[in-house]
Write a protein that binds this DNA or RNA. Structure first.
Lengths: 216, 216, 216, 216
DNA sequence: GATGAATGAGCCTTCATTCAT
DNA sequence: GATGAATGAAGGCTCATTCAT
């Protein structure tokens, strides 16, 4: 007995609106990708919206229809990428491994993610440590990631795995050395393969945070 | 019989010129100090030359008489501060101590210098790791410091004091963790006293670079 | 013997075209009504074609299919309303009453029409006396109305009913005080009922134009 | 015996600042004059700031140094001219004449002022009766003038000189017929000499407001 | 035919730089 | 030399109009 023909999609009640939302989503991603390119190549003020327009092969109007302004395009990239990383970190933590394994997995996550998103990496390297200069805003993706890391370090310190230091400092340090490691990779021409890059980083991580680290 | 026209003053052949040079030098320093202030408070594009003019209590004309443009004011600060640091590093190296002592002395130098020049520190934190994005130019102050550090690490590795890694990587790492350490200090309100700040950093340095580091 | 192919309907030979014309006419009216709304609420440059589209619940394409541009939509409203008023004025004149009665009837017509078309009224009040600034174009609806009024005043002056002044000036004056009267009505919240509004205006009209007006 | 050389000026304490203020004032006037020209020729949205810049033979920067934006340039003209008229009206009222004489003097003031400032007149004619559409804001120059006129009408009505009507309505009417009168003058080519223009207007004013007006 | 997303010319505004005083 | 007012090129953004679906 034949089943009824399956509905092709299930676009919530208003197919027109759903289609529009889908298209917008695609465009949005497209623009963000183009903008990431542009912001990777030039600092914020040298990056022109025209550049993004050209890169995305979309008109100014299309861009401004989707984003309220240049500033928000930049912010959206940061938030988007940040959220992706946040999800990966959450997934790692959900695995409920020991503190060392967790930190190593997080470190791996970062290296892999930024290795695979070199435009975002470059854009990030420009921003530098500007986070230290603005007052911490809660409900900021970076802040949330920071909290998660801090939690892992807290447990690790308590367990005697990590060196006894302010866990927030260690969390900041992790993010920082991650950036340095990748900055070095970028500067040396991005030649080192991902696995090697990661292994080198993990060694640095162990050395930096483990109470009894193997000297390598 | 006419006497020869009298030379106006003695110093360095052209006293008028010498006086001018002296005054210019004072103005130059004054402008750089004001600009440092401004660039510490805002990113490059938000910092207006007017702001510098106001801060320095000097006219736009005076500024442009001494510097060809905004970009060069920024560059001059970096270069100036860089040179000061370079001299300090050179002095340390000239002491001809062992690699560990030398690296610790350099690290101390950095922390002290940046602790004592918080405007430059903040300005620096904004720049971030942008150095990784531009092709290395020789005859760049930062590059020169990097070379010196690399040299120290080379000797330290050979001597078995430091972990066996690419000395240039270690040099980059040193500069990087220095930045992170200070960024953390800034973010936590610059409350930690200088000596404590330095000691904490030295512990991090030993952990990071020593082959057989004491676990702290 | 074959009958001639039956005409589907009567109107002008091409029923398809006739249907189209009819639909277009309906749309045209609909758009003009919406535009009137919008132009009543905002000055020309603040009124967006999008606003009209939204108000009319018609796509941009539909609007531009019927009107060549924003400017022409505005002009069409003016012309359309002007033509309606022109017809009413013609009808009044066709009644062949005395000059005073005619002017009073025309005045009544204006008040009634604009009272009943408050959007057009508001739109009109925005335009103000811009007519004074552009060179008079013949074959302009406003001009035609002006001519008719002028004619009535001419006859009234000759008959000794109206004050002896340039009839074109009087015609302009009539239109002007009409606007003022209604502007006052709008500003005071459009509360005064139509009949009262008209009676007040007629008193003003008599005072303004009658040679021997009753002092009220 | 020689007198001491007289001080050239007495610029309040800070001659530099005083000079600056003086120059700014001159420029401000100059820009407003140019803008008046431009706004007289085109509606607000067709008038470009560039046009004003060209007309004033001043750079964009100079304009924006003195005015925050296009909107405010427009508003400044209205306010400036309004204030001048307000002062004239106040002076008239200060003469403490009878209501009729006062109203006639005010009417004369208007005609003279607008006759002598034809750019402002044209600019004004474009604005039309838009005042009826926005909610009355107190502390608006136009509103203040309106109040003064209303006061005169109140007294005149009480004295039995003017027709018994809402004094605010009469005040609005006065301003309105003034505009119409001048609009007619503009449309007929601004040929009528000022005195004639005024006399014609005064006749209209008497006819419109006097309880027992001479029929002219 | 109807739609509304896409376009891009154009304008307001800013600010690095210049130059008359 | 010092000043700071004047300049005008350049960029973010809007919205009338078009056109692929």
């Amino acid at each position: 007995m034949a089943a009824p023909p399956p509905k092709k999609k299930a676009p919530s009640a208003h197919p027109r609106a759903a289609a529009r939302a889908a298209r917008e989503s695609v465009y949005r991603e497209h623009i963000l990708a183009a903008a990431e390119h542009v912001f990777a190549a030039k600092p914020f003020d040298e990056a022109k919206v025209q550049d993004i327009s050209r890169e995305a092969e979309l008109s100014m109007g299309s861009i401004y229809g989707l984003f309220p302004g240049k500033e928000q395009i930049f912010a959206s990239i940061t938030e988007q990428r940040g959220n992706e990383i946040l999800e990966l970190v959450r997934a790692v933590i959900a695995r409920n491994q020991g503190p060392l394994e967790t930190i190593e997995a997080i470190a791996t996550t970062y290296i892999h993610y930024l290795h695979d998103h070199p435009h975002f990496l470059r854009m990030n390297l420009r921003t530098g440590a500007a986070w230290a200069l603005e007052p911490r805003t809660a409900h900021n993706v970076a802040e949330e990631i920071h909290e998660l890391q801090t939690g892992v370090f807290e447990r690790g310190i308590e367990a005697g795995v990590f060196i006894d230091d302010d866990p927030r400092y260690l969390a900041t340090l992790l993010t920082g050395i991650d950036q340095i490691h990748l900055a070095h990779w970028v500067q040396t021409g991005m030649k080192q393969p991902r696995d090697e890059l990661r292994e080198d980083f993990l060694r640095l991580v162990r050395r930096t945070f483990l109470r009894n680290s193997p000297r390598n």
